[in-house]
Design a protein around this nucleic acid. Structure first.
Lengths: 132, 132
DNA sequence: ATAATAACAGTAATTATTACTGTTACCATA
DNA sequence: TATGGTAACAGTAATAATTACTGTTATTAT
């Protein structure tokens, strides 16, 4: 009941997100996919991003600033968010999954995943700061 | 230029957030503060929550689901978010600040803070699941 | 006291996202 | 290779959360 049915719009959205290294918002993805399907609806983009995130094909990143961002990278990884320009950058760092066990020690629920966001200034914003 | 000026509304918001152990939304705080200042404006609540968070007096927690939440606890700590009922719970766990150094190793920017959100099911939602 | 301005209440506007409606495309079965 | 069931669609309306605007009030320095 309620089986997932193929759609080229979803396929296109998925491929687009997975091919990009930046972390686009729903709106940015909408603008891109429109070049292939000119009358795709923004609602369709939102719905499919949500479905793809639920399936684990893409990752949804919620920041304090503005719209949610999406990441098509398969392997698990963490993110840096610049507090100046709000850019999101993938971090190449060693696995820290063991923090889940530490978190679960004095906790009565069941922890199955986590997200870490690191904050600070990116290289560009540090550079710009010096030229004041 | 632009020095911070005292206001009893801000004071009240700050005390309220810091006295609560749940993690209220702006709207919940609004409803509470209205019992003291019946004609306080929702905009005032938002503005002051933002100011207080910038000053580090309270913490802003952005989840994927619904409105942002606020936490008045002084000591640094991490949060668990239930993927069923979306409740936010403070975690009593050992300090893991060293993950910042691990994150900074192959990164060209400057990391100064981080936020970890752990996900899963809380005790109540596990209990409810069994009674199906 | 007075003057400068941060903060306010009230309201309007914006942004991001979700829901609704009639139509189309996918896919299983005949 | 028709046909029927329904997921997905485009287009649009609605909602939720947050921010901005405007005229007035409160705080603080002089």
């Amino acid at each position: 009941m309620g089986a997932l049915k193929y759609s080229r719009q979803r396929e296109s959205i998925k491929e687009l997100v997975q091919s990009r290294k930046d972390h686009p918002t729903a709106d940015m993805i909408y603008e891109s996919v429109r070049q292939i399907y000119p009358n795709i609806s923004l609602g369709t983009v939102y719905r499919n991003l949500s479905v793809l995130a639920d399936m684990g094909e893409i990752i949804k990143i919620s920041t304090s600033e503005g719209a949610d961002r999406f990441d098509g990278r398969r392997s698990p990884h963490n993110h840096f968010i610049c507090r100046q320009c709000h850019k999101v950058i993938d971090l190449e760092m060693e696995n820290i999954d063991y923090i889940m066990e530490k978190a679960g020690k004095n906790f009565a629920g069941d922890i199955d995943s986590y997200k870490v966001h690191f904050f600070g200034l990116c290289r560009e914003c540090i550079k710009n700061k010096k030229n004041d």
